[in-house]
Amino acid sequence: MADVIALFLDTLSFTLTLLLVTLGLVVIFGMMNVINMAHGEFFLLGAYVVVVVTGAGGSFWLALVLAPLVLAFIGFALEWLVIRHIYHRFIDTILATWGISIALKQAITIMFGPGLQSVPNPLPGTIDLAGIEYPLYRLFIMAMGLLLAAGTYLVFFRTPIGLTARGVIANRAMSASLGINTRRLDWATFAFGAALAGFAGAVMAPIMSVDPQMGVGFLVPSFLAVLVGGVNSLVGALLGSALIGGTSTGLSAYLSQADTQILVFLLAMMVIRFFPNGLTGGKR
């Protein structure tokens, strides 16, 4: 029984963590049709904001607030410098953000060195869940994933800002002719997506080995989660995260990490092959 609960908790934890990391990607991909290959580095930068702030004696919680702000600014700057020139060239957005990712990763390596940085766990200790001692901070991460996903959903589907954003996605020219400043919405969306990635990185920093390669490891599962679930779709992102997270956790109980990764990737590729629009078909 305890094993089942542990497995369930691990699956839930992986799913919500992946959802947390994926959110920024979904926003930028779904809303702007930009494949942001630099997403992993935005995530990475969020973690390094925590490294810098806690290293300077600041509190972790302060860093958690600062990280999304810093990333929003970086996202804004990159949108203005690079992305706005290539919205109509889909393939080039992949390449340009890939170049950004190379440059950002190297900039981090130059500033902090290639080595590991450690971040103290702000919520040490465990909590008793139905007979399982579960780390408190993992629960915090899961709560954050859930909270942020729900928040993003509400913003996009229950507020005027979200309505405007969805209107621009549906018909850009018409929205502009109704007086909506589509340019402002573009950079705001990109900055918001970057901020989400930065927040995810900051939240994950205490339980990960923070080094310049940490972004790549999350990039592929996140993309797979988005594509498996269906682009343009927050529900799809949840579904995709659950599938990737669930199979990963389930398989890793029996297989080595590498074999698990291979199997999960292959499965995800097959799903994308047979459902190019994702399992939700791209609706919501």
Partner: peptide, 14 residues
């Protein structure tokens, strides 16, 4: 919501 799109651009999000 369509009609809202007509005023959101002109008068802002409120």
């Amino acid at each position: 919501q369509n009609l809202m799109m007509g005023v959101l651009g002109k008068d802002g999000i409120f």
